[in-house]
Nucleic acid binder design. Structure first.
Lengths: 121, 121
DNA sequence: CAAACGGTTGAACAACCATTCAACTATTAT
DNA sequence: ATAATAGTTGAATGGTTGTTCAACCGTTTG
């Protein structure tokens, strides 16, 4: 087919709907808030991390137990635990050679619960 | 007395805390549910998609407007809109040359709201 | 002390994913 | 009909990220 070549790559919507754009921009959160929000959700966006959260939801578990439960290596689990720790979603307590991990917040349960409701439809 | 065999690189936690593992495993959701949940959160785990959701939260917008508001190309926005569409988070309506996108669900607002509360602490 | 175990960490690799680019469709205006 | 605009799409690319591997630290046991 024949290519059209004289096209100018510009959009005139900005002039057409300038008011709408400004109105909607005004109701949006700060850019940094949006980034924080996306980063927060990113933590939950991995099935391994999600599994870990559910695993320790019932009772605190050590790394070795979590690895056995999920059928993964201790290393892989530990890497993900670090991410969950840095996000303040879990806390840990050393007992002898073991490190027991616990959910740090009921807030987390709420969000996951809401999402579960949305999924089941 | 039987002497210890040569060292085997295995973890003995499974034997030590077998009961705990089985108890916690019992309270976990299906594997497929966890995957669905992670996939759901993955959608929100990108600042561009999050920005789009906030942008059209106030009022429906066309692709060109969204692109102008976010300072992105129409192509990049369109790609993300496709993902949001496939997840049933947004709906669209064609009006002449334009395509207006809208949030499809109040459920989505709830989840984002909960997460915002968690962030602001 | 030395060996063994639970756990952590950094580097390397592979898989995934968001943006860009170019070409395409569809609708409207000249 | 032709050109311009709004939007979509597939391939390519560069960045991100989860897992593996090996080495390491801290605690406990012989």
């Amino acid at each position: 087919m024949i290519k059209h070549e004289s096209t100018v790559p510009s959009c005139e919507c900005e002039e057409l709907h300038a008011e709408l754009i400004e109105k909607n921009r005004a109701t949006m959160p700060d850019e940094s808030t949006i980034y924080d929000l996306a980063d927060f959700f990113k933590i939950f966006g991995d099935s391994t991390r999600m599994s870990i959260l559910f695993a320790i939801d019932g009772a605190p578990m050590c790394v070795c137990d979590i690895a056995a439960l999920l059928g993964m290596t201790k290393s892989a689990v530990s890497h993900q635990l670090k991410i969950l720790r840095q996000s303040d979603l879990i806390t840990y307590k050393k007992v002898g050679k073991n490190v027991f991990y616990t959910l740090s917040d009921d807030h987390v349960r709420d969000i996951i619960e809401k999402a579960l409701e949305h999924i089941k439809e």
